[in-house]
Computed example of a mutant assay.
Amino acid sequence: MDNYRVKWVRASDGRPMVSAVSYDLPSAEHRKTALETEGATDIEIVKVRPGQ
């Protein structure tokens, strides 16, 4: 299984963020959609190695 993290810039203060957990691709895409709804910008799904 491939693992993914989500990176984004928080809308409230412009702070760059990275997910604390790894997701499978459908879950990462769901998280991206939720972040878009919250107003986050520069959202990126990044593939990572297991345990990274």
Rank of each mutant, 00 (worst) to 15 (best):
M1A: 15
D2C: 10
D2S: 10
N3S: 13
R5N: 12
V6W: 02
W8D: 00
W8M: 03
V9T: 15
V9I: 12
R10Y: 11
R10D: 07
R10H: 08
S12F: 10
D13E: 10
P16N: 06
P16H: 07
M17Y: 07
V18T: 15
V18K: 11
V18H: 04
S19H: 04
S19M: 05
S19R: 02
S19P: 06
S19C: 06
V21S: 08
V21Y: 13
S22P: 07
S22V: 06
D24F: 11
D24P: 12
L25Y: 05
L25E: 08
L25N: 09
S27A: 07
A28V: 01
E29C: 05
E29V: 02
E29D: 12
H30Q: 13
H30M: 09
H30K: 09
R31C: 04
T33K: 04
A34C: 10
L35Y: 02
L35K: 00
E38D: 12
G39E: 02
A40G: 02
T41K: 11
D42Q: 14
D42W: 08
I43W: 03
E44N: 08
I45E: 07
V46S: 14
V48A: 05
R49D: 15
R49P: 09
P50K: 06
P50Y: 04
G51A: 04
